[in-house]
Amino acid sequence: MSFSLPTYHPPDFTTAKLAAAPLTRFARVQRDGVAPPDYHATSIFPEYLHLAPGDWRLLTDSRMDCVVRRGEKGALEVVEFRRLRCGDRVALGRHEDGSDGIYVHTSGFRFAEQRPEKFAFRTLTTRESSFSFDYDELSTLLEHEREAGFVLWVLGPALAFDRDARAAFVRLVRNGYVQGLLAGNALPTHDLEAALYGTALGREIYRKRPVAGGHYKHLDALNTLRELGSIEAAVKRGLVGEGIVHALVEKEIPYVFAGSIRDDGPLPEVVADAYAAQDTMRALARRATTVICLATQLHTIATGNMAPSYKVLADGAVRPVFFYSVDMSEFAAQKLINRGSLTTRAILTNVQDFVVTLERGLKARDQGPGS
């Protein structure tokens, strides 16, 4: 199986309705953080604003549920409401068909039709679905992205609870399939606990046997890292010599660990302020061309809300952002699909099996036929 990006088909702005469309209206912000009445809220789809006759401008670095701010030199910026300042010019219009000078393009990528008949069985992703093709398709995608994209992984702590899963993910990092990572405090805490003590939440990561004083292990890991001042210091001193976090530091992969109300510790690198965490997460989400979320419903939803369905490349080409949600729960895995994403795929399995199977398949592809 070979991979090729789907072709983007821009709107035809010569059609009568779009050719006669008015220019986009803008209004000044009267109060910090408050958009003017009739503001336009962005979606996950490619959106064009009519700035001058015949000049339809595609939004870049978009995300859903934001507003469009126009700079003094005409540049368009998609920003959260909290970033608005008095005097900013914000795009207006609730109609998305061009009649307000705004066109939301929902059919830019023409993906192959998966359902040839009006009535068919098993059209939704469930625990009964087969995923062999999905693994092969993802493998070809990751091979492409390793050379020409930015793969952002969003991890829940379950990945750190299993020896083989940790080892498989470390190999993914070292082999170039990870360009960025988002997680909460729990994932790095338990990965570092495993590196220091061979446990996760006080249980051995291979045999799952509880150890004496096990309930102290993750707290001891947190306390040790807090005393050293950083994860990088623990790696440089040789205290942490293996694991997911070690591989990230070793390969200089950017990561964001976002705090939550329930955190213990937390680790020194955890961003405790929710909006500061959102800002740093979005900085990586903007770079992503593929996002893979593993067993973390809240972080999956958060990242999905930050990532549009498309990305404008440096040469002006437009490509889709692929989004995978992997979870044992049908509800969690389908959550992003339900928001209307064009490219979200759900794979229903435990994340330990997913990572091990995926890495094994990529290794076989790297070694070639007959390996």
Rank of each mutant, 00 (worst) to 15 (best):
A158F: 05
A212Y: 12
G214V: 10
L225S: 08
E227Y: 14
L219A: 06
L192K: 04
K208M: 14
Y206M: 06
N223K: 12
R207G: 13
Y216W: 11
Q179T: 04
A195Q: 09
Y197D: 02
A183G: 12
L196M: 14
L225D: 03
L192S: 06
D164N: 12
A212R: 10
G184Y: 01
G184L: 02
E193R: 09
G213D: 03
L159D: 00
R203S: 11
P188H: 05
D164F: 05
V170E: 14
G176C: 07
R203L: 15
A221G: 03
L182I: 15
A212F: 15
G214Q: 05
Y206F: 10
T199W: 11
V178G: 06
K217F: 14
G176D: 03
T199G: 10
A158N: 14
Y216N: 07
F161N: 02
K217P: 00
A194P: 02
L192W: 06
F161A: 12
A165M: 06
R226C: 07
A195R: 11
P157F: 05
L172S: 11
L192P: 04
D191Y: 00
R163C: 02
A165F: 07
Y206L: 09
A167E: 13
A186R: 10
L219R: 05
R226T: 05
Y216D: 05
I205R: 10
R171W: 01
D191G: 00
